[in-house]
Nucleic acid binder design. Structure first.
Lengths: 215, 215
DNA sequence: CGCTAAAATGACCAGGTGGTCATAGAGGGG
DNA sequence: CCCCTCTATGACCACCTGGTCATTTTAGCG
């Protein structure tokens, strides 16, 4: 469970660690877990094959290490948004959260790709373990946000919180997918847009949600 | 492009064709395209390996045949819904369309799984070809529906049709995913529910949409 | 029956896979 | 200098992949 990195790896100098992880992220993002090749990876880094197994024990150990790091990064930046926007109204907070999601993709496009590929591949070592960690987003993040919104009277009291959460989940996921993968941007207005356009688009979508949520 | 089935296969008696396709769908649904194994498949069917290649030319030819069949099935059932519900108001039509999507998953759960796995695996032979066929759903199906809705005055005229389409796309996809894959049902209210409960849930969600869409 | 054309077969191929481990090397302390 | 521990290495392993094709089996016809 300690995500697969052996002490030998941690004793490496920072730069070599970075090179190895960066190449591994490239490999997993390009090919997904199963089709990623350790042979190709070590060729790209310029180290011996055995070293990877010395560092991480197995292919899965390597993947696990990267994935845990990615989840930590997401969780951290979301916590920050939640804290930073506490004084704002519900709809502004939702907009800020979605914008943070977009920023994450912008800063770590490959980590997001790895996530997408993992979610839809049902055969997977320890997949459930990863998914449970991710589910925190909806249950631990969105739901309290909604409850606060109801409490503050920004959301009508007769709206089922589960339906509201479903709606926001759906929109968040789809918006991020559309930003990252052209196919999901059926309307062709999200993928490849700049920050300001995205912000405007988010506002439009959340305004539409607002009409449904508010009294 | 003629989706990979050779005449030899078409000359087989119906029952054997069915057995082969059914086993192939099982294999692709369980493993995805790349990890699906022809060896495993022929063992399950009880025929020689060479036969598959005689029938479909290649692994991709077999996949292509199945996928094209799946797309035809979806397109057919959607056309039917559109025709059958023409007299109803916009929101009832949307509800019926989503319900039809749920029915498809119920009747062909494995085909839906194959679709999901394909969409998120960016490396893929002829992936673009398949995706273009699917995009028809949003562009050819949803958009005219929305335009009719605006025309009839069931949707406020100042609502951007692209935003409306995005919203419905997001909700449709997520609802179907939640029905098919427990992970996406964060609120735990969709997956595994019976037809009547699903219908009620759909109504709730679309009612919420309606508040945003109507004047 | 014999003849022929079509279909079924599975041994075989080249090329990959994740993982192992004996060996060589590096670095530091005495 | 030796000695010892830790690290790096890549040849090697067993296994699996999609695909081929010479050979055998089957089916239909006269």
């Amino acid at each position: 469970m300690e995500s697969g990195a052996r002490k030998t790896f941690l004793r490496l100098d920072r730069e070599k660690q970075r090179r190895i992880l960066s190449a591994a992220i490239d490999e997993f993002a390009a090919w997904g877990f199963h089709r990623a090749s350790i042979n190709r990876l070590v060729r790209a880094i310029g180290i011996a094959k055995g070293s990877i197994f010395q560092y991480f024990g197995s292919k899965e150990g390597l993947f696990s290490y990267i994935f845990d790091y990615a989840i930590e990064t997401v969780r951290f930046s979301l916590k920050k948004v939640k804290r930073d926007t506490e004084h704002l109204d519900f709809y502004s907070r939702v907009e800020a959260s979605l914008m943070e999601g977009i920023s994450f993709i912008e800063n770590h496009p490959k980590l997001y790709r790895i996530y997408l590929k993992m979610v839809f591949q049902e055969d997977f070592p320890a997949r459930d373990r990863y998914l449970k960690k991710i589910r925190l987003f909806s249950v631990d993040y969105l739901k309290p946000l909604i409850e606060t919104g109801i409490h503050r009277g920004e959301i009508r009291a007769d709206l089922d919180p589960d339906i509201a959460a479903f709606m926001l989940d759906a929109i968040f996921d789809r918006f991020m997918q559309a930003y990252a993968v052209p196919f999901f941007d059926s309307e062709g207005t999200i993928h490849g847009s700049g920050r300001e356009e995205i912000k405007k688009k988010i506002k439009q979508v959340i305004d539409l949600v607002k009409r449904g949520f508010k009294d």
